[in-house]
């Protein structure tokens, strides 16, 4: 199972630029790029230009933990074109800031095994097929950290 990928193929595109810190050495793992307000500490993803809490202009770039916890989730059975179904979608929480919610697909797990509170880790994976360009959309997704629950769907 491919865990990290850095160079995109010809028929692939990033879901967005500047969301991911890609690993530079084999020991590193990919991370989400977030903003942390210098004065109040609020963490934003995607990174904001101004703090949404205190209007501070000084937002420092940080990398969120590779692991997060599933706060809530759904199994999507019907979607817009281009997504593999059923698709597990979750709202994640990170230890950096309890008020921050990040939405993501959960990969490599059977739908019936997903639970609220489950720990997951960041991977780079295919999110969808872009029906306008025909390209595979690559971006961040998460998978369970517990080894024996990980499986190919």
């Amino acid at each position: 199972m491919e865990q990290t990928r850095i160079k995109l193929e010809e028929n692939e595109m990033w879901v967005r630029e500047n969301l991911l810190k890609l690993p530079e050495t084999p020991d590193e793992s990919p991370r989400l790029i977030a903003g942390k307000c210098e004065s109040c500490g609020d963490v934003s993803f995607p990174q904001k230009e101004r703090c949404g809490v205190c209007s501070c202009k000084n937002i420092n770039q940080i990398y969120l933990s590779r692991t997060a916890k599933i706060y809530s989730y759904t199994i999507v059975h019907r979607s817009v074109p281009g997504y593999q179904l059923p698709n597990i979608v979750a709202m994640l929480k990170f230890k950096e800031d309890d008020s921050l919610l990040v939405i993501s697909q959960i990969k490599n797990i059977a739908p019936e095994d997903v639970k609220s509170g489950m720990e997951v880790e960041l991977i780079i994976d295919k999110l969808s097929d872009n029906f306008m360009t025909g390209k595979k959309v690559i971006g961040y997704a998460f998978q369970p950290t517990i080894g024996d629950i990980i499986r190919e769907r």
Binding site: T74, V76, S79, V89, A90, M91, I103, S104, Q105, G139
Partner: peptide, 17 residues
């Protein structure tokens, strides 16, 4: 772009919460 069907997926997650 991340989640696909966003409206119903979001409300489903609100419901589960």
């Amino acid at each position: 772009d991340v989640a696909g069907a966003f409206g119903p997926a979001l409300l489903a997650m609100v419901g589960r919460a």
